[in-house]
Design a protein around this nucleic acid. Structure first.
Lengths: 204, 204
DNA sequence: AGTGATCAATCAATCACTTGATTGAGATCG
DNA sequence: CGATCTCAATCAAGTGATTGATTGATCACT
């Protein structure tokens, strides 16, 4: 709560831009890029359309703002979770858990990411904002497999980068697949574990 | 070639609708749904906007037409390639090859599929048209793994459906990944083969 | 003559963006 | 102090351009 005033009428540009980005993100998740209207964003923030354009000059800049905000979110999140001290297998389990959490409790984030990735094909600005996120994720997962192969947790003939692509593709693809139940997610995770585990010729 | 006339000025409604769907598909691949304009479609077909609306009443119907045309394409393609007589391993290799071909030589198809899948989240009509394609693909791939497990080509503890999701997710994800070179695709394929193969406890 | 297909012209609605004026909090100065 | 000035922030009311869709006349073929 602000002490200086009971009702701070004017917000700073920085706060406004954050609020605008948040509102735009919600609306993109709800209606996609097609249905994104500057008027709707302004209405959700509770400001006039002209004020919106005062803070963010064009619609394109606005979408860029959303992309940047999303990138910043991911960057902050990865800093919050230092896991270098965990074993490769444990880190892999955390990846499963993180994705599951995002999928079931932050559907908006995933939907907006998906929209942005789609748009990134044609929009260089969006592409530039999305690429670091993707690369970071791939690097993180690939590092898990590199370490896991080195310490014998995973198959010795495993290609860390290719497995990282497979892993991430499988998770993202899950969201688009025919069955998005938690039970099926667990089956997918189990299959991914089997795909990378060391091949002990145990025969029951 | 039509025999009855040297220059058939008027096309049949069916041909027109096909041409319209094809033009719309191209434009979706180029500019996405956001940039899809009925005027552009008419121009590409070489007809008046009103004529477009004569054949396809609304834009929504037009998008539905594209979705249906795409579904029909996939259905026809799967009929053209009867592979039940091949071994599971051979069928899997065909899946790799088919995807690679589609990715590098029919990028449009993949781009439009991607756009349609994205839109399917909010559009029930599109969703209804896309779902059969997705299900069919999953079933086909899952069947390969079912047969492969049965005849010992693949791991006995392999979950065919989950592996199918992993497999398809990995392929689709490849197109969005950081490296889309044929060389990297081959690495991904190799990793997928290792992920499903029978575990011979060979130790070098 | 009749029918399906086509077009030029047009409409109503919507969109991103602009204009010109207003507000209010802080800086400047007598 | 307090009068005046500055300026970021805000808004009501547009502007011009674009969009999906319509109308009514015309064309081609039977």
């Amino acid at each position: 709560m602000t002490v200086t005033s009971t009702a701070p009428r004017r917000e700073t540009t920085d706060d406004r831009r954050r609020a605008i980005a948040a509102a735009a993100r919600e609306l993109i998740a709800e209606k996609g890029f097609e249905g994104l209207r500057t008027r709707d964003i302004a209405a959700r923030v509770g400001i006039n359309v002209a004020t919106l354009h005062y803070h963010v000059p064009t619609k394109e800049a606005l979408i860029g703002l959303v992309a940047d905000a999303m990138r910043e979110d991911f960057r902050a999140q990865s800093l919050v979770r230092p896991r270098a001290h965990l074993s490769p297998a444990e880190r892999l389990e955390h990846e499963f858990y993180d994705f599951q959490e995002m999928f079931y409790e932050q559907r908006d984030t995933l939907a907006v990411m998906s929209e942005l990735m789609e748009r990134a094909r044609r929009d260089e600005v969006i592409h530039a904002a999305m690429r670091p996120i993707l690369l970071k994720w791939h690097q993180m997962v690939a590092a898990i497999f590199v370490d896991g192969v080195a310490d014998g947790s995973f198959r010795a003939d495993l290609d860390p980068e290719a497995t990282s692509s497979m892993f991430i593709g499988a998770l993202v693809g899950f969201g688009r697949g025919p069955d998005t139940s938690p039970q099926y997610f667990e089956r997918l995770c189990a299959e991914l574990r089997r795909a990378v585990r060391v091949q002990t010729p145990t025969r029951n």
